[in-house]
Design a protein around this nucleic acid. Structure first.
Lengths: 210, 210
DNA sequence: TAGTATACTAGACAACAGTCTAGATAACAA
DNA sequence: TTGTTATCTAGACTGTTGTCTAGTATACTA
């Protein structure tokens, strides 16, 4: 359906993109024409109509109403997830002071919407190799969906004392274990009455290679 | 420096943000006034001037020239990386027909800029466990920066025959090996004269957990 | 108490910006 | 050849859009 653009049409689209990037708002037809070296308004509008017909932009009959279909898309999908430096018992995870930076992730990927009522996500940097057999390495970032409970075999972030730890949540009959995925590390056994504070479930793993 | 906004000013800013999100271009003063229930133009412009003075937006004396300082900046990081379904020898990787979907990633994370001349990135879904010891599992997505060569010990995507494969690039004297990170799999040895087609270097790994 | 910032109404005015008509040239397909 | 698409020039017309003047009311500060 989305037909190919001609070379000139592509140049027009690039010019619009550049304009928005520079100014923060779309160009008028005259401004666009000046930038492209087209002296007549009709020349520009016919380009715009052609590009719109192919689905790469939308227009309304109003001032500066060009909107790029593909430029808007990442805006809708993009979600800023705070990277939390330290988690303290008794304090909300997203205490502003502990937010070190933000990570832009694909909202659709982690099952998030940008609606304010949607479940909150945060990111943690993993320290140590305790989950190495699950493919989570030292230095990886994990994206966590905040929730107070977990299903068996979920990988969760739990608060043990004053430290957040990433482990697999295993239910063995009545017994709950926080199982490291590491050949030599021992599971942490939790008695049913003293359940650990589950901060959330790991829904994605991000790794940056040098 | 960035002073606090009043409640009403915050509402104005939110209205602008929502408008841009919905339409893709900024509102006029009249449109903004209508949305906020302000009947006079002066009422709206004085808000805009106040907000601009506090640094949250910029204006020019032209139609729809409101641009939000804070909205654009974080989302400029967002980059859409195409997920390539199949790679065919002799064809450009980014042949449109093979792009299955897009992934929004943090441009800063993968060392990308959105400038047109910057190195191109693409994403691949990993099949098989051949890189399991490097923490890359079946079903993971890898982000690749396109480049024709590699440094020793880089994890690369190489084209072997008609198939793209993720391996570690190892140089053993004159000999080049494509080394799987798997306990039982054998390396692929490449003679110096018949160097494999390196498509690029893996710069990030993404995993989605169910 | 005077001064200043916030938060509005009402409306005039001039420049801006999209639409439209009327052409022209070139490439390419039927 | 004829028709279609892509690219463009020139310019009239009209509704849109930002600016500005002139007021009103409230709250807080000095």
């Amino acid at each position: 359906m989305a037909k190919q653009l001609t070379k000139r049409q592509h140049a027009v689209l690039d010019a619009i993109r550049a304009w928005i990037r520079e100014r923060g708002y779309p160009p008028t037809i005259r401004e666009l024409g000046k930038r492209l070296g087209i002296k007549s308004l009709r020349g520009v509008t016919s380009h715009l109509d052609a590009i719109a017909k192919k689905g790469f932009l939308k227009r309304e009959s109003r001032a500066r109403s060009i909107s790029l279909s593909d430029l808007l898309a990442p805006f809708e999908q993009a979600l800023r997830v705070p990277i939390v430096g330290r988690i303290r018992a008794g304090q909300p995870v997203l205490a502003q002071e502990e937010v070190e930076a933000h990570l832009v992730v694909d909202g659709a990927w982690i099952g998030a919407s940008s609606a304010p009522e949607a479940p909150q996500h945060f990111a943690l940097k993993v320290h140590g190799d305790s989950m190495i057999n699950a493919g989570i390495l030292d230095g990886d970032y994990v994206i966590i969906r905040q929730q107070p409970t977990a299903e068996p075999n979920d990988i969760v972030v739990a608060l043990l004392g004053d430290e957040a730890t990433v482990k697999r949540f295993v239910k063995d009959g009545e017994q709950i274990r926080l199982q490291p995925e590491h050949p030599t590390m021992e599971p942490i056994i939790v008695t049913p009455d003293k359940s650990p504070a589950i901060l959330g479930k790991v829904v994605a793993v991000f790794r940056k290679l040098a």
